[in-house]
Simulated assay, not measured.
Amino acid sequence: MRPNSLAEAVARIQTGASWDVALAEFVDTFDLAPTAEARYATIEEEPILTNDKRLDALVGGVAEYLAKQHMLGRVPSWASDPARILDRPWHTCSFADHGMREYLTFASPAEFASRNIFTEERPLRRARSPFGRHLPEQA
């Protein structure tokens, strides 16, 4: 069962779920929400701070990124908490050599880069997302 909110996804991670699975399932929930208000409701509640600085920063970036990509008109205030910003750069690619780090630094969306997280250009792509489609729609 998919988490109903970003806060619920973080709670699942705290109980042992993998980051990749819990966050991907949350993005599916977000993308399937029928209205902008329903989407905002999935990011409105503040997820607990986990003492994992990377996860805490990532979750703030996810909320801000989704709110802006989907033009929800507002970002939850909790996403701006200084505890959600890393002190040191984190390049999310595990094989980030110098060239890859440079690419990630350049390509990372502002919502993540401002938190010192450097990732791919469209980090939350999902197959069902309008931002994840690679082929044009057929008429």
Rank of each mutant, 00 (worst) to 15 (best):
L49F: 11
E45F: 03
H134Y: 11
T119H: 10
G73C: 02
P136I: 14
D52M: 08
R126T: 11
S94F: 12
S94I: 14
L58Q: 09
V59C: 11
L55W: 07
P109N: 04
A7C: 07
T105D: 07
T15Q: 15
A33W: 08
E137S: 08
W78E: 07
G132E: 05
E25R: 02
Y65D: 12
H70Q: 14
L55D: 01
E64C: 05
A107V: 04
H134C: 07
E8G: 01
D56I: 05
D52E: 12
A7G: 07
A96K: 00
D81V: 03
A57I: 04
E44F: 02
Q14H: 06
F95S: 13
S77N: 08
H91Q: 05
F118D: 00
S129Q: 11
A127C: 07
R54K: 15
E137T: 09
S129A: 13
E46L: 06
R39C: 09
Q138A: 12
F95M: 14
V62F: 08
R54Y: 15
V62N: 00
P47T: 03
W78R: 07
E64H: 01
P89K: 14
L104F: 04
L124A: 06
E8W: 06
S80M: 12
D87I: 06
T119S: 12
W78L: 09
D87L: 12
A139K: 14
A57H: 01
E8L: 02
G99K: 13
E111V: 09
F106Q: 12
L86I: 08
P47H: 03
W78C: 08
A83Q: 15
E137D: 08
A67E: 05
A41M: 01
P136E: 15
R2V: 09
G60Q: 02
A127I: 13
F131H: 07
P136H: 13
D31A: 05
D20R: 04
R122M: 13
Q69G: 03
F112V: 04
R101S: 13
P130G: 05
T42H: 05
H98E: 13
L6Q: 04
F30L: 03
I43K: 00
M100L: 11
S18L: 15
A67K: 00
A63V: 03
C93R: 14
A139R: 14
A9I: 08
T35G: 04
T29F: 10
T29C: 11
P136T: 13
R2C: 10
N116P: 01
A57R: 00
P130N: 12
R101H: 04
P89C: 14
L104W: 01
I117L: 14
P47I: 03
R133E: 13
E121I: 05
A41E: 12
